[in-house]
Simulated assay, not measured.
Amino acid sequence: MAASDAQKAARAERALLAGAAPDVGAALTQWLARLGHERRLSPKTREAYARDVATFLGLLARHLGRVPDLRALADMHPRDVRAVIAARRAEGIEPRTQMRFLAAARSFGRHMEREGLGKVGALTAVRAPRIPRTLPRPLSPSDARAMADPATRAGEDREPWVLARDAAVIALLYGSGLRISEALGLMRRDMPEPGRGDQIIVHGKGNKTRMVPVLKAVLEAVDAYARACPHELEPASPLFRGVKGGPLSPRIVQQAVERMRGSLGLPDSATPHALRHSFATHLLSRGGDLRSIQELLGHASLSTTQIYAAVDSVALMAAWKAAHPRAR
């Protein structure tokens, strides 16, 4: 059985504490508790933070020639941080991962300063790696509809209820713009039956909740799955189940999408998250305003949503170049 996010986070936190100096370990324990209780970060995010700080401390220990204590962290020079970043870059880590790695270390540094354990100024003196700006790659409306159509999976040699389940998840990703973690985090009670409501409460990043409308076709797809599912779906239990009855793993959904890519001839960019991109881009192209799309997606900042305006502009220019007689 796959480990839960909480179990993975606990393992990552134990590994972090095992390799730290005693005073740093005590500070890390406080910091991890703050992440969980005050900032309400999910176990998956805490796991990532713990792994990144463990990697930072390990590379710093290799650079300094000893396991750093709180005094060594406070006495760090920017060149020490640059040496750690260079070592991380030498491992072939991409800039976005490097930025997250540095952000986790800075979070712990802020905790040290807040608790009077020392000011780690070197972490803020070093600039984060630049991340090349890349635009989301949404699917075309016809491809997105094909992925969300149960008939697409009719030829697959799997149990009918499993095909219905995958169709329901994919319909939610495209029809409501959910993250895969949000769709798989739904309880049975969260999803209204057809004709008895058209909205759901979604628990997003940082345990933030939002109201999301659900299309009739999506409700029907979920209802078809629920009726076919051989496992008892109690109101307070996960809506989507694996073959053995446990919560459905995101990897299973990713594999289902990979199979569809082959059958539909779609590019590698056709992923579960691309369906969320497609939801936002298609809404915008049909006249949806950015502020409403921000609310639907659960973005904390409008600047995050504005990237879809750039995608829409790129698509508009491509259409103009293809169709205008003076564009060639």
Rank of each mutant, 00 (worst) to 15 (best):
His77Trp: 10
Asp312Ile: 05
Arg110Lys: 15
Leu302Ser: 02
Leu266Pro: 03
Met112Glu: 03
Leu316Thr: 06
Val212Gly: 13
Gly58Asn: 13
Thr45Asn: 11
Met187Gly: 14
Glu94Met: 10
Leu290Gln: 02
Thr271Cys: 07
Ala15Cys: 08
Ile131Trp: 09
Ser181Pro: 13
Tyr308Thr: 05
Glu91Trp: 01
Ala221Gln: 15
Thr55Leu: 15
Asp69Ser: 12
Tyr308Glu: 05
Leu123Pro: 09
Pro192Trp: 07
Leu60Gly: 10
Asp143Pro: 08
Val126Ser: 08
Arg227Thr: 11
Val257His: 04
Gly177Gln: 02
Asp69Ala: 15
Asp143Met: 10
Ser107Asp: 14
Gly116Arg: 01
Pro272Ile: 09
Ala26Cys: 08
Pro132Val: 10
Val257Thr: 02
Ile131Gln: 14
Leu57Asp: 12
Arg165Phe: 01
Ala270Ile: 06
Val214Ile: 07
Arg153Trp: 14
Asp157Val: 07
Val24Met: 02
Arg100Ala: 04
Met211Ile: 12
Ala224Lys: 03
Pro138Phe: 06
Ala50Leu: 13
Lys44Tyr: 05
Ala315Phe: 03
Ala171Gln: 10
Met211Thr: 12
Gly109Arg: 09
Pro230Gln: 01
Arg11Phe: 00
Asp223Ser: 07
Met76Tyr: 00
Arg79Cys: 06
Met211Ser: 10
Arg145Lys: 11
Ser107Arg: 02
Arg71Ile: 15
Pro43Cys: 06
Ser269Gln: 08
Gly92Cys: 13
Asp157Lys: 13
Val169Pro: 04
Ser303Gly: 05
Gly185Pro: 04
Leu296Ser: 00
Leu135Asp: 14
Arg66Val: 03
Gln7Asp: 11
Ala10Tyr: 00
Val169Met: 03
Lys244Gln: 11
Arg89Leu: 07
Val214Leu: 05
Gly58Val: 08
Val243Ser: 07
Pro160Trp: 14
Arg62Gly: 14
Met260Tyr: 00
Met147Asp: 03
Leu296Thr: 02
Lys244Glu: 12
Ala319Gly: 13
Ala327Tyr: 15
Ile200Lys: 06
Arg165His: 02
Arg40Tyr: 09
Ser292Thr: 13
Thr45Arg: 09
Pro150His: 05
Lys321Cys: 07
Pro213Gln: 13
Ser237Ile: 00
Thr45Met: 11
Arg89Asn: 07
